[in-house]
Design a binder for these strands. Structure first.
Length: 771
DNA sequence: ATGGAGACCTTTTTT
DNA sequence: AGGTCTCCAT
């Protein structure tokens, strides 16, 4: 446990100021790389030295990643026991925990389950079909976003349906039935004892609004509140925090308006701008010294963000070295872009003895990762793609979780529908339709019909009834085990006795799915072996003795976790690929931002309003400020979109970086590879991507990458046994032997990544690497 | 009831 | 290009 002095000695003066201000409201404006998390965690440690109980501390973050990082760093500072007593987590996860405890007050049952976006869309799809509405008019995703916005503004389905203004607006946009859909949707979720993401915030507000004694309970418990990324909070989140802090007024919010990138989903910049209206006595501290990046990067970032008109005054500066200038590569297509990035990484690794994990490749959309991935794989550069939905969105994982959900909450209709016939047990679409009709008729849950088919007599034949009953019995037998077995044992039991494992094993093509399920089971095993974050009884504050890591607890921990299962292996030596959004809050030595093109970044969907464009620019600011040592930006003249090639203009953002922070702007190396007829004429000032008229005839230009940075091009005579060479596709290798002379000379080269290849030298374009 | 072929749609970003 | 959905053949 650190003393007050050791805590403060690790901080600069404004950081200290922030850490020492623990009573009363505090707003921290924290520039990129200014040690924000450091201040938050040290502030928690400092509180403990002042005798504040960790049990009274609540720290809310926006993403799981941020929560995890904060937990780890708090743990390092104040030790295990204290760290576990604090409440550090995302808004959604902390509130889910509370809502499960208080569920009955809100008319829900215990063991709430959480519907993710896919579940929610599914429910909406069913409702829209039931109402005989056109699914293409009432797009489930769009309807969901309307519902989500309403809930974020604390409108209930009833409020929505009864509002004449909203009804008018929906009528004008040709979607008059959204109110009715919303009503049915809310009813359906309640019936399933489930909440969607927005409900977690909405019902938390309802709880604190309608139950004063509950409000008081949590106000007393959470006497010190910290909110990270305050600029990303929406109205519902803002109000919860305001209510919780109303008694103690010990609230610290941290944010950077320049890094607000979630307005598109309801985040409200005003929350940070209005903080001092709610708390006039608030202290304001600005963290402006950047410890992360070079002067070049910091100054370039400052210059970029100046193009935005809406922002708080702040001047980020650094004492770090000047550093390398920012490189821009102009390439002809995405293959070349990927090759250029790969070359640069290999080059830097070789010259400066760097590791893969010092590099990150960032992009605007997930779709861009594919071309990069292919190239990295070809070049044998280890990489990892951080895509939010990768693991948990897999069919087999969702199936498995559906079993868990149904086990914990028999009324979880989406889970039931998902697995009632997986693996196949003769309960097909027809049967499902029949029992749905019966459930509506008797106004009971789908589960009731499945559980007691002989009572409700759905119009299915007798063997089918038996099959339904068998399924229900199986699930009930799992439910009965929840408190008796730990999560892993029960999960294993479910996987084996449900037939899921067998189904996966029978089908050779499902091998990968089987492996994923096994990986999931491994992660459950480690969950059961790991002590939980919070060993206190939420009601009493007492230590929980004989804690058992049960399946329902596992589900709670995983319900809101979209991150990868094997997130522990962070020290893996791999190049990291992710969207800029996903990179927020992270830092990397060497950063590549690809696809710096109009309509991609800034996105074509964000060009409508100044507000949206400014958000894109903030996103660019975030991208730039991720880099510690070097930053490389790339853009292409041509890129595939929706499967067809499109011309691309360089992003306006590139022109917003002052020249004195920029290095060589490399010209596209292979303009000539476009056949002249369409190369220039369509490239004009149009703000749209222009589809190429010629499909699939674009020449491959991967061999025309700029290799000047790696070495000089070899003539056939240069190639002799035992020398080391570089090849644009195969990478580095050693020449084994040669055969023939001059233009017909061949060489056998043993490449590091792909092994021996025989090359005809007049075509191979080998490079002699610089030493 | 199951699966395959073809149409069709998608594309921000995340809890 | 890739995934999802629909419909038709089995």
């Amino acid at each position: 446990m650190n003393t007050e002095n050791t805590i403060l000695s690790q901080l600069n003066s404004s950081q200290q100021e922030a850490v020492k201000h623990i009573e009363g409201p505090l707003m921290l404006i924290a520039g990129a790389g200014s040690g924000k998390t450091r201040v938050l965690t040290h502030r928690i440690a400092y509180m403990l030295t002042k005798g504040i109980s960790p049990y009274n501390i609540l720290a809310l973050t926006f993403t799981n990643k941020a929560a995890k990082e904060m937990r780890e760093r708090v743990y390092d500072l104040i030790g295990e026991a204290n760290a576990k007593a604090t409440s550090v987590g995302t808004f959604h996860s902390i509130f889910l925990r509370i809502l499960r405890i208080e569920a009955t007050k809100l008319g829900f049952r215990e063991n709430l389950t959480v519907y993710d976006t896919d579940d929610a869309k599914n429910v909406l799809k069913n409702i829209i079909k039931d109402m005989n509405l056109d699914i293409k008019t009432y797009l489930p995703g769009y309807v969901l976003s309307r519902i989500s916005n309403a809930k974020s503004s604390l409108l209930s389905a009833e409020d929505y349906a009864q509002s004449p203004e909203i009804a008018q607006a929906d009528a004008v946009s040709g979607l008059p039935m959204i109110g009715e859909i919303f009503l049915r949707y809310a009813a359906r979720l309640r019936k399933s004892n489930a909440m969607d993401f927005d409900d977690l915030l909405y019902f938390m507000n309802v709880l604190l609004r309608d139950f004063p004694e509950t409000l008081l309970k949590y106000q007393r418990r959470y006497r010190y509140i910290l909110v990270d990324e305050y600029q990303d909070t929406n109205y519902a989140q803002y109000l919860i925090v305001k209510k919780l802090a109303a008694l103690s007024r010990n609230i610290c919010v941290v944010g950077d308006d320049a890094q607000s990138i979630y307005a598109f989903r309801g985040a409200n910049i005003e929350n940070i701008l209005n903080f001092r209206r709610d708390y006039p006595e608030a202290k304001l501290v600005k963290l402006e010294q950047n410890y992360r990046s070079t002067k070049n990067i910091v100054k370039a970032a400052n210059a970029i963000i100046k193009y935005n008109t809406e922002q708080l005054q702040k001047e980020v500066w650094t004492n770090n070295d000047e550093g390398a200038k920012i490189t821009i590569h102009s390439l002809s297509n995405e293959t070349e872009e990927a090759n250029t990035v790969a070359n640069s990484i290999l080059d830097m690794k070789l010259n400066f003895h760097l590791k893969n994990n010092q590099f990150a490749i960032l992009y605007r959309t997930n779709a861009q990762s594919r071309a990069l991935e292919e190239t990295l794989m070809k070049r044998n550069i280890p990489y990892k793609i951080y895509a939010a939905t990768s693991f948990y969105n897999r069919k087999e994982i969702r199936d498995l979780i559906a079993y868990f959900r149904l086990t914990v909450n028999n009324y979880d209709e989406e889970a039931l529908r998902r697995i009632i016939n997986y693996p196949h047990r003769g309960i097909g679409a027809t049967t499902l339709e029949k029992i749905t009709v019966a459930a509506d008729e008797y106004n009971v849950h789908l589960w009731n019909i499945v559980n007691e088919p002989h009572v409700y007599n759905p119009e299915v034949n007798s063997p089918t009834k038996t099959r339904l009953q068998d399924f229900a019995s199986k699930i009930k037998s799992y439910t009965a085990q929840i408190q008796k077995m730990n999560a892993y044992d029960l999960a294993m039991h479910i996987v084996t006795t449900s037939g899921m494992l067998l189904a996966l094993k029978e089908n050779i093509a499902e091998k990968e799915r089987l492996e994923n399920v096994e990986e999931m089971l491994d992660s459950i095993k480690s969950f059961t072996e790991k002590q939980p974050d919070n060993l206190f009884n939420e009601e009493t504050g007492e230590m929980i003795e004989n804690y058992v890591p049960t399946l329902d607890r596992y589900l709670e921990s995983v319900a809101l976790l979209i991150d990868d299962v094997d997130e522990d292996k962070e020290d893996e030596d791999k190049v990291k690929l992710m969207t800029i959004h996903a990179a927020k809050g992270l830092e990397f030595d060497h950063v590549y931002v690809t696809g710096m093109e109009e309509n991609l970044f800034p996105s074509s969907l964000s060009l409508g309003t100044k507000r949206e464009l400014e958000e894109e620019r903030r996103l660019f600011y975030v991208a730039v400020t991720r880099a510690k040592k070097s930053l490389t930006l790339t853009h292409c003249q041509m890129r595939y979109k929706y499967g067809s090639p499109m011309f691309c203009e360089r992003s306006r953002f590139l022109d917003e970086i002052p020249d004195n922070y920029l290095k060589i702007i490399q010209k596209a190396s292979s303009k000539a590879s476009f056949s002249g007829s369409y190369a220039s004429s369509n490239c004009g000032k149009s703000s749209y991507s222009v589809p190429l008229s010629v499909k699939k005839s674009v020449p491959k230009t991967s061999k025309q990458i700029n290799t000047a940075s790696i070495g000089k091009e070899a003539t056939p005579d240069d190639i002799v046994p035992n020398i080391r060479v570089y090849h644009a596709t195969f990478g580095y290798g050693n020449v084994i032997k040669t055969d023939g002379v001059s233009h017909d000379k061949k060489a056998v080269v043993n490449f590091d990544s792909v092994g021996e290849k025989t090359l005809l030298l007049k075509f191979a374009k080998l490079i002699l690497p610089y030493k």
